[in-house]
C-alpha cells in the first residue's frame, strides 16, 4: 500500500483515510524500534536527504533514525554548514541535490510555503518537516497517534491547544488533523497570540486557560518562543507563566484522565511547570517515541514497494 501522492506537505491536504492509513502503518512499525536489531530492509537502496534551514533536535534526529531503521541512506544537511551561507538559493540547492538522485527530500524551512514551492521544482518526494508558521504535518500525525493510543479513538475527544497559536505550525496542523478525525478543538492564549480569522478554521477560541482545559481530554501546550520576545506579545515571561502557563494548580480542575502533550523543546517554568511536564499526565516522551514510527510510515508509504 502506498499513498497516491508524491509529497506530504500539509495535513490540510490529507483526507481522513490517508491519515488513518499513516497512523495504522506507524502502529505496525512501532515494534521495529523495540527490537534488538532495530532495522528492516524495506527501503534499502533509497536515498533520503534531510535539508534543514532551521535548528532542530527532535525532528531532524527522528527523520534520520526513521530512515535508517528502514535501511534507507539518510544524509543530513543544515543550512548553516552548507552552500546556503555562500548565498546559494533554495532553488539551486534543491536542483543540485536532485541531480544526485535522492528519492525524498525532507525540508524544514523558516518561510511558510517553501515545501510547496520546492515540490513543484522537484521530481522526488518532498516531506514538510515544518515550514514557518504554516504546517508541521509529521508532528500532528505523531500527536494523533499518541492520543489515539491512549484513548483508542480520536472521534469525540476535546482538545485544547494553548499558547502562541499565531506563530505555531504545530497548532495549524493539529487543528486540521484533530478536526478531520472528529475531535473538537479549542485554542487558548492571549489575544496577541491569536491569528486573524482563527475562529473560521473550525475551532473554538478562548482567552482563559482555565476555561480551555476544564473539560479537555487532551491539553497541548505550545512552546513560547522567547527569542521572539522583542515582538512583545506579552508583558513578561513571569506574567505569561502565571496566567497562561500550565501548572499542577490549574491542572486540578481538569479531567482525571486528561493527557498533556508538548511538541518540544519545552521552556520549563514558563508555558509548563516541571512537575506537570514530568508528571503522570504527560505524554511528552511518548510523542517523541511515536515520532520515529510515524516518520517510518511516511517514508514507507511514499517510497516503499515497487515504483511505477
Amino acid at each position: 500500500m502506498r499513498l497516491k501522492r508524491k509529497d506530504i506537505l500539509t495535513i490540510e491536504d490529507l483526507d481522513r483515510d490517508e491519515i488513518g492509513l499513516i497512523l495504522s502503518t506507524a502502529e505496525s512499525f512501532k515494534e521495529v524500534s523495540d527490537r534488538e536489531i532495530k532495522k528492516v530492509p524495506t527501503l534499502r537502496g533509497r536515498t533520503i536527504i534531510n535539508l534543514f534551514y532551521e535548528a532542530s533536535t527532535r525532528t531532524r534526529t527522528s527523520f534520520e533514525i526513521a530512515a535508517k531503521r528502514m535501511s534507507a541512506d539518510a544524509i543530513n544537511i543544515s543550512a548553516s554548514s552548507s552552500s546556503v551561507v555562500k548565498g546559494e538559493t533554495l532553488k539551486d540547492t534543491a536542483k543540485n541535490l536532485e541531480a544526485m538522485n535522492p528519492d525524498c527530500i525532507v525540508l524544514r524551512h523558516p518561510s511558510s510555503g517553501t515545501p510547496q514551492i520546492l515540490s513543484r521544482l522537484l521530481r522526488c518526494s518532498v516531506i514538510n518537516a515544518g515550514d514557518g508558521a504554516h504546517e508541521h504535518p509529521s508532528q500532528a500525525l505523531l500527536d494523533l497517534l499518541t492520543v489515539k493510543q491512549r484513548f483508542g479513538k480520536i472521534n469525540g475527544l476535546k482538545v485544547a491547544i494553548v499558547g502562541d497559536i499565531a506563530h505555531s505550525r504545530v497548532a495549524r496542523s493539529n487543528i486540521y488533523g484533530f478536526i478531520k478525525l472528529g475531535a473538537r478543538v479549542s485554542v487558548a492564549g492571549p489575544p496577541t497570540m491569536m491569528p486573524s480569522g482563527i475562529d473560521k478554521m473550525g475551532c473554538g477560541v478562548c482567552y482563559n486557560v482555565e476555561d480551555a482545559i476544564l473539560d479537555a481530554d487532551v491539553i497541548m501546550m505550545l512552546r513560547i518562543q522567547l527569542e521572539r520576545q522583542n515582538g512583545c506579545l506579552f508583558p513578561t515571561a513571569r506574567e505569561y507563566s502565571r496566567l497562561f502557563g500550565l501548572d499542577s494548580k490549574k491542572l486540578e480542575k481538569a479531567k482525571k484522565d486528561v493527557v498533556i502533550l508538548h511538541p518540544g523543546p519545552i521552556n520549563r517554568g514558563i508555558e509548563i511547570s516541571s512537575d506537570v511536564a514530568d508528571g503522570e499526565y504527560s505524554l511528552i516522551l511518548n510523542q517523541v517515541k511515536n515520532g520515529v514510527a510515524v516518520r517510518m510510515a511516511l517514508f514507507y508509504l511514499l517510497l516503499g514497494g515497487s515504483r511505477e
Binding site: 504554516h134 499565531a166 491569528p195 486573524s196 480569522g197
Partner: peptide, 15 residues
C-alpha cells in the same frame, strides 16, 4: 493581507 488566508498559509499579515 491579514485574515483567514494569511492564518491558514502561515504568512505574516498586513491589516
Amino acid at each position: 493581507n491579514e485574515g483567514l488566508i494569511s492564518t491558514k498559509l502561515g504568512l505574516k499579515g498586513i491589516p
